[in-house]
């Protein structure tokens, strides 16, 4: 479980986060949603310590992560995996080398053991047969899969995903969401996902945090999204005229 307490972040005189407190639960896909520029990436990077909050505390279980020094943070970091918005694969390494990198860097496994682990993980993200290709030679969806494989190969307790389906077509997008949800449930990971994708919200929103103008505007589950009357939530979810018409049609049917 990760808990954040009154997190504030200011860049110059721009207040990006204005005191956010919430909980990200274990074994669930916890979502941070909000419009572009709402501060989702900043919030995720504060969670993993890539950005220092102006004030506030990030708790990993009972550990005050914000009070740790670099060395102490490393201990928690070996339990983290992160999928970046652009996948952030290492260009000079093949798919296999990218996925194996954390093993090479941090474990004493033999070559054979690593091979087995890499193959198993690539299979888990449904990506076999591309081992020797380079990141620039595979599609965006495949890059995300490689990124997920690299993030989960050390069996992390915490998984962070920054817009896992940005730049993907709807079908691929759904598959990536499904993959993250299943891995989260199977391994009982605390997963935090940034997204502004409607589909993701409805499909994998176990615990949804809507961020608006630097504040937490709504918290709930995907089951509550349709019926909740929160205006900011409704504005966000039904942003497109198409979805508004669907909603209105559904309401007409209900009332008839």
């Amino acid at each position: 479980m990760i808990r954040i307490e009154d997190i504030k972040k200011q860049f110059g005189d721009q207040e990006v986060l204005k005191g956010i407190s919430t909980v990200f639960e274990k074994g669930k896909t916890n979502l941070i949603i909000g419009k572009s520029g709402a501060g989702k990436t900043v919030m995720l990077k504060i969670l993993v310590g890539l950005i220092q909050p102006t004030s506030g505390i990030v708790w990993y279980g009972d550990t005050n992560f914000s009070a740790l020094n670099t060395k102490q943070r490393k201990a928690i970091r070996t339990e983290m995996g992160m999928l970046f918005q652009g996948s952030a694969l290492f260009d000079s390494m093949s798919v296999e080398e990218n996925v194996r990198f954390p093993l090479d860097m941090f474990t004493n496994l033999t070559k054979k053991e690593k091979e087995i682990k890499v193959d198993k993980t690539l299979e888990r993200v449904e990506l076999t047969g591309s081992n020797n290709k380079y990141p620039s030679e595979v599609s965006g969806g495949m890059q995300k899969r490689v990124g997920i494989a690299r993030a989960i190969i050390l069996d992390p307790k915490y998984l962070f995903c920054d817009e896992p389906n940005s730049g993907l077509d709807p079908t691929t997008s759904m598959k990536i969401d499904e993959l993250i949800r299943n891995i989260t449930a199977e391994n009982q990971i605390t997963t935090v996902i940034n997204t502004h994708d409607m589909n993701s919200v409805m499909e994998i929103g176990d615990n949804i945090n809507l961020v608006h103008l630097g504040e937490l505007a709504w918290v709930g589950t995907r089951h509550e999204v349709m019926t909740n009357k929160n205006e900011l939530l409704q504005d966000f979810i039904f942003a497109s005229p198409f979805l508004q018409r669907l909603r209105d049609a559904a309401n007409l049917n209900k009332n008839a």
Partner: peptide, 8 residues
């Protein structure tokens, strides 16, 4: 950032 999060 990716390296950093891994603990490198």
């Amino acid at each position: 950032d990716a390296l950093e999060v891994m603990g490198v």
